[in-house]
Each structure stands twice: as structure tokens, then as C-alpha cells.
């Protein structure tokens, strides 16, 4: 038992059972024999694909924030909103706790995740480890459950349905960029192989 290097073993994060690591073929995944959790997987061209997707996300994020998101027309009056307007309006109405929460999980954390991913992966692509790469990549992982753009989008759909009979709702460029952003973020998340990033970070300068 002690002869085996710990690097050739992996423990299940859900039930703690130890397994020997095998090399996988691309697209394969290893699951825990006791509880079924995914232990590790080999994703094809993970670093390059994640990088391209993260750069796309950055562009989509900018588009989603500068153009009008939705506008509301009733009795000759029009109210144009941006992606961030909901959070700002909550702030104006004195609900600062909700304002911080909505802006954090709907806008700020997703941005931080995109920037953090790029910060770590761009130097890693050239086999360089940038200052505080480990901390930043840990942060990216910790932020994942708190970046809730897809839930935000569902909130948009419910709000839209509630208003559609009462007024004219115009969907802006930002809304479509935001929808695209959600799809590309999901693709980037599934393309990212965290194990590979940690391994590369260890061997990079």
C-alpha cells in the first residue's frame, strides 16, 4: 500500500473510496465504483477549446452589457433597460441587499469567472505560470455555483410572460448576447479539464 505513489491514486470526493488512476482515452470518464460520482475524465483539446470559448464569452459579456436589454412600452411611454438596470433599480428603491446579490450573481461573478479563467489559461498555454495562478484558479472553481446567468435568464422569461399582455416588450441586442453567453459559458465549463490545468500549473515555470 505504501509502495504506491499517492499521485497514482484518486479518492472519490463524495464517498472517499480510493481508486487507482488509469490513463483514459479522449472523451472517456472514470466513475466511482461505490457511489457513481465522476472521478476524472479526459477531455479533448481542453485548454485550447476552453481558451477560445472564454474569449468568446468576454466579447459576448461586453455586448450584453452595453446594448439595451429590454424595453417596455405603454401608453406612449417607453422604459429602456440594460442588463444591470434591475440591480440598480433595487438599489434606488432601498433594497441594497437584493441589489448587491442580483448584481453579484447575475453580472459580477460571471465576469470574474471569465477573467479568472483567461488570466490562468493564457499564460498556461505558453507553459508559463502567472502570479497567484493557483489562488485565481481556486477562486474560479469556488465561483461556479454563484454565477447564475441561466437562472437570471429564466427570471427574464417569467417577467416577460407576466408583462406581455399588458404592454409592448421589445427585446434588445443585449438579451440575445446574454442568451448566447449562457450557452457558450456552459460549453466552456464542460470543455474545461480542471485536473489538466492543475497538472500543467505544477509543471509550468
Amino acid at each position: 500500500m505504501h509502495m504506491v505513489s499517492t499521485h497514482s491514486l484518486i479518492a472519490c470526493h463524495d464517498c472517499d473510496l480510493l481508486h487507482r488512476k488509469h490513463s483514459l482515452r479522449e472523451g472517456e470518464r472514470a466513475t466511482c465504483s461505490r457511489c457513481g460520482a465522476v472521478l476524472y475524465q479526459k477531455k479533448p483539446d481542453s485548454l485550447e477549446r476552453t481558451l477560445i470559448l472564454a474569449l468568446t464569452n468576454l466579447i459576448l459579456f461586453v455586448l450584453a452589457n452595453v446594448f439595451p436589454f429590454m424595453s417596455f412600452q405603454l401608453q406612449g411611454r417607453e422604459q429602456v433597460t440594460l442588463l444591470i438596470s434591475g440591480g440598480i433599480e433595487l438599489f434606488h428603491q432601498g433594497f441594497w441587499q437584493l441589489a448587491f446579490l442580483v448584481i453579484a450573481v447575475g453580472v459580477f461573478f460571471p465576469l470574474l469567472k471569465i477573467l479568472g479563467t483567461l488570466y490562468v489559461l493564457i499564460p498556461l498555454k505558453f507553459n508559463r505560470k502567472i502570479w497567484r495562478a493557483q489562488e485565481v484558479f481556486r477562486l474560479v472553481g469556488a465561483l461556479t455555483p454563484w454565477a447564475m446567468m441561466e437562472v437570471f435568464m429564466l427570471g427574464v422569461i417569467v417577467a416577460y410572460v407576466k408583462l406581455i399582455d399588458l404592454a409592448t416588450i421589445v427585446l434588445g441586442i443585449s438579451l440575445f448576447s446574454f442568451a448566447a453567453l449562457i450557452v457558450v459559458v456552459a460549453l466552456a465549463d464542460s470543455a474545461l479539464d480542471a485536473e489538466e490545468v492543475w497538472e500543467r500549473m505544477e509543471s509550468a515555470q
Binding site: Q79, V151, L154, V156, A159, I169
Partner: peptide, 24 residues
Amino acid sequence: GRWSMLDIFMIAILAALVKLGSIA
């Protein structure tokens, strides 16, 4: 669990859109 945030986002969006003074 995160999907329950739906209502909070909906309120934020409604509050930003429906700002028509005395009308609504």
C-alpha cells in the same frame, strides 16, 4: 438550489421595466 433565485431576478427585472410613475 440555485434555481430558486428565479423569483429574485424576476422582481429585479420587473422593477426596472415597470417604472411609469402614477400609471404603474
